[in-house]
Design a protein around this nucleic acid. Structure first.
Length: 320
DNA sequence: AAATCGGTCAACCGCGAGATA
DNA sequence: TTATCTCGCGGTTGACCGATT
């Protein structure tokens, strides 16, 4: 038996939203909220739209504080750093860029940023574009030198590791206070190495790696989950633990405490005592992780980061 | 001036996860 | 435990628009 459709496809309007529909939706949500049920919302609001379509329109366009227009270099850097670290988890990346939506960032990455990155690293590139409909982006603006420096320094072929990201500048403070913490997305960390590399970005405050709280509300659904620290957290150690071996005392152990506190999800990284972070903690990723990341991101026909699996490590670095 | 091409981005689709009955 | 429903995510599509031929 197939999946039931979320709405009556025959009786819903598709395509671009009219200003009238926009104002209907906006007015309704501002007055009554979503009611936690997008499926029922269009009927209540007098819209002939699918609930999913309403949700998307609200989240990506109508909700307050949406930022449109050019991305700053700093935003470029953040996207770049996070993409290298966690891949195409756009909602997570969006959560670190207030006012930006996952859709925005995804579009920006696919249409501009990866080309900028490519051009910045290979201004005289002879690299072939492997699909006939891939246009060499020679006309695009080269990556700014600072961003190029940042992104191109991810990978060091001699050590087969990524490095060069300064944790104190690459990740904005809001990253640390996101309501959509990575801690709630265990699948983000597909390998021990990537877990460790991500964790290196988090500052340590009194022996705790912290997620959540502090009023930042940038998740793509516009909702906030207040994270509380300390008291009352049910100590429920979840799926993953990380080990960081470089820049820390050997095999320093971190644990994610995750659970619910009075109906709220709470999560908290904790470390055993005596850990320290040096001034510069290199970002370490296993080469295979990166290859897999690139290969995975390659499935689309328009992807510029085509990688032949047979390429050497040196050639893999070519793309970053 | 018309046709074609390429880039952008809003919107759609299908799937997995989580909640609930 | 299972079935069903809704939400949210990431990949993809296609309309639109400006540039080029």
């Amino acid at each position: 038996m197939g999946r039931a459709p979320c709405c009556d496809k025959a009786n819903v309007k598709k395509g671009p939203w009219s200003p009238e529909e926009d104002s209907k939706l906006k007015e309704y949500i501002q007055k009554y909220g979503t009611g936690g049920n997008w499926i029922a919302l269009p009927q209540k609001a007098g819209l002939k739209r699918c609930g999913k379509s309403c949700r998307l329109r609200w989240l990506n366009y109508l909700r307050p504080n949406i930022k449109h227009g050019e991305f700053s270099d700093e935003e470029d850097r953040i996207i770049c750093a996070l993409f290298a670290s966690i891949g195409s988890r756009w909602s997570i990346i969006a959560a670190q860029l207030p006012g930006r939506t996952d859709n925005d960032i995804k579009n920006y990455w696919n249409t501009k940023l990866k080309k900028k990155l490519f051009m910045g690293m290979h201004p005289q590139s002879e690299r072939p574009f492997q699909s006939s409909h891939q246009t060499p982006p020679f006309q695009t603006q080269p990556l700014s030198s600072s961003l190029y420096k940042e992104c191109s320094s991810y990978y060091t072929s001699t050590t087969k590791s990524f490095s060069g990201l300064d944790p104190s500048t690459s990740i904005p403070p809001s990253f640390l206070s996101s309501s959509t913490s990575l801690a709630t997305h265990p699948s983000v960390f597909q390998t021990q190495e990537s877990r460790a590399s991500f964790m290196q970005y988090y500052p340590v405050k009194e022996n705790l790696l912290m997620f959540g709280s502090e009023g930042s509300c940038s998740s793509s659904d516009g909702s906030c989950t207040q994270i509380s620290y300390g008291r009352g957290i049910k100590q429920e150690v979840m799926a993953f633990q990380g080990y960081i071996s470089d820049g820390l005392e050997e095999n320093q152990k971190f644990m994610l405490n995750y659970g619910r506190n009075g109906g709220e999800n709470v999560s908290q990284w904790a470390e055993t005592p005596h850990a320290y972070f040096g001034d510069k903690v290199p970002l370490e990723c296993d080469l295979e992780d990166v290859k897999q990341l690139v290969i995975r991101s390659n499935s689309g026909a328009n992807n510029l980061f085509n990688v032949d699996e047979s390429k050497t490590a040196e050639k893999v670095t070519y793309f970053y």
